[in-house]
């Protein structure tokens, strides 16, 4: 088991090993939903919440079900099933008890099911043999990192809304280029901590 302070993992997964900017995971919703600050914030919160939840559940399932039966190779399919079920459950709860939140991110919730960052975090947690606390820190941190990245992106995109972007680059094109620049900028953090 890697012996890293959970707090270090938390900070690292926000800044130096950011899911979007260093692993380029979860790009589809990152590009699609980063047009407005309000919706990005909503989606970012939802991703953070789901990431935390699924990392915990997947950690338990992996260590207490899959390992005892020597079924580690099933983790891909099992993780996907638990993520899908968890998102469904969250959607139901949000729809019932948090109507305002539901109206602002209702249609994005199902999108999270297929957000690769979620599956990515669960798989990295296994590959890097994290302990429970480390895994939770990693899940929360990755979520916050994702939130930070999409918020920054939506801010930039609102700023350049009226800028003369060349026709072929409008929308996703310029977003990808900005993502690349943001990733370069985030390399500046790499001296602080390192987890991989």
């Amino acid at each position: 088991m890697a012996d890293i302070n959970p707090f270090v993992i938390l900070i690292a997964s926000i800044f130096t090993s950011n899911m979007i900017l260093s692993n380029f995971l979860g790009m589809c919703s990152f590009i699609a939903v980063s047009k407005e600050i309000k919706t990005s914030l909503g989606l970012g919160q939802a991703v953070t919440f789901v990431l935390t939840g699924t990392t915990i559940i997947n950690y338990l399932v992996y260590h207490y079900v899959l390992i005892p039966f020597n079924l580690e190779y099933l983790r891909f399919i099992v993780f996907i099933i638990t993520i899908a079920a968890f998102v469904q459950l969250v959607e139901m709860i949000v729809e019932r008890y948090l109507p305002t939140l539901y109206y602002s991110l209702g249609i994005f919730l199902p999108l999270i099911t297929v957000n690769c960052a979620i599956l990515g975090v669960s798989l990295f947690m296994v590959i890097r043999s994290y302990s429970f606390i480390q895994a939770v820190a990693f899940g929360v941190g990755s979520g916050l990192g994702w939130l930070l990245a999409i918020l920054a992106m939506s801010g930039i995109r609102q700023k350049i809304k009226n800028s003369p972007v060349p026709k072929g680059l409008q929308g996703p094109g310029i977003t990808l280029i900005i993502t690349g620049l943001m990733a370069l900028a985030f390399i500046g953090f790499s001296g602080i901590v390192k987890i991989q």
Partner: peptide, 22 residues
């Protein structure tokens, strides 16, 4: 067995949620 077990548990959870939450 394990896969069906996990799937059934989750399905059951969702069904219960559907009945009580939705």
């Amino acid at each position: 067995g394990v896969i069906s077990g996990i799937a059934t548990t989750l399905a059951l959870l969702l069904t219960i949620a559907d009945v009580y939450i939705a």
